[in-house]
Simulated assay, not measured.
Amino acid sequence: MTAFEPQGIRSYSQEEVQQILHLAIARQAADPDREFSYKELLEIAAELEIPPDSLQLAERDWLVQQSEVQQRQVFNAYRRGRFKKRVGKYVIINAFLMLVDLMAGGGLAWSLYILLFSGLSSGLDAWNTFQTKGEEYETAFQNWHRKHQIKKTINTVVNKWFRAFQM
């Protein structure tokens, strides 16, 4: 389609319509903190001839997606925290070994080999920690999510059990 075609001849795919509307809404929003009420959302959907039940399903799907995004952010923060802890251990242990090597032989010899091999290990650990795509990441996320859900369930049961005995 060219920009010079008459308006009656223009046609767009559904994906193109979504992209155009997304850009139009982004331009219209002069105030980035402006929020829309559910009533306004319903009015917009009605103007686009989107049935309310389709809008509700889309909103439910969006909420599920937002929940997963938040869970992934928590998981990534957990991985970064765990990595920082391991790097701290790496620095402390290697500094101690280098100090021992300096005091024992008057220079650095064998401790550099340990520093090199443990640095390789830490580099691979960094790669795995900050890699947020791929099958390994998904497997790690699913395992973490499962453990997190089990802990949440156990805490709920234990809390209910304690409340029952407090009465």
Rank of each mutant, 00 (worst) to 15 (best):
R146N: 02
H148F: 04
G81Y: 07
K151G: 09
I154C: 00
A30S: 14
A30M: 09
S121L: 15
W110T: 10
L99F: 11
E35M: 14
V158R: 05
P51T: 09
Y137L: 00
M103I: 13
R80C: 13
L97Y: 05
T153D: 04
I93M: 06
D53R: 14
R72N: 01
R86C: 08
N143W: 03
R27F: 14
I92Q: 11
L116C: 08
E135I: 04
L42S: 07
Q66H: 07
Y78C: 11
V87N: 01
S37E: 03
K133G: 01
F75P: 00
G119F: 07
F130G: 06
S118M: 03
D33C: 08
Q131C: 06
D61H: 07
K89A: 13
G123M: 12
E68F: 10
S37P: 05
P51W: 10
I50E: 03
K84A: 12
A109T: 13
T153S: 01
D33K: 15
Q28Y: 13
A58F: 10
E138Q: 02
E47T: 15
I44Q: 04
I154E: 01
E59S: 15
R146E: 01
L116A: 08
T132G: 04
E40W: 02
H145S: 06
F75L: 02
H148K: 08
A45S: 06
D33A: 10
A104C: 12
R80Q: 10
L120I: 13
L112R: 03
Q142Y: 03
N76C: 09
L41D: 09
G107Q: 12
L115F: 07
Q65V: 06
K85W: 13
R80T: 15
S122L: 14
Q131L: 09
S54L: 14
V157R: 04
T132W: 06
A58V: 08
N143C: 02
D31R: 10
V91S: 07
T153A: 06
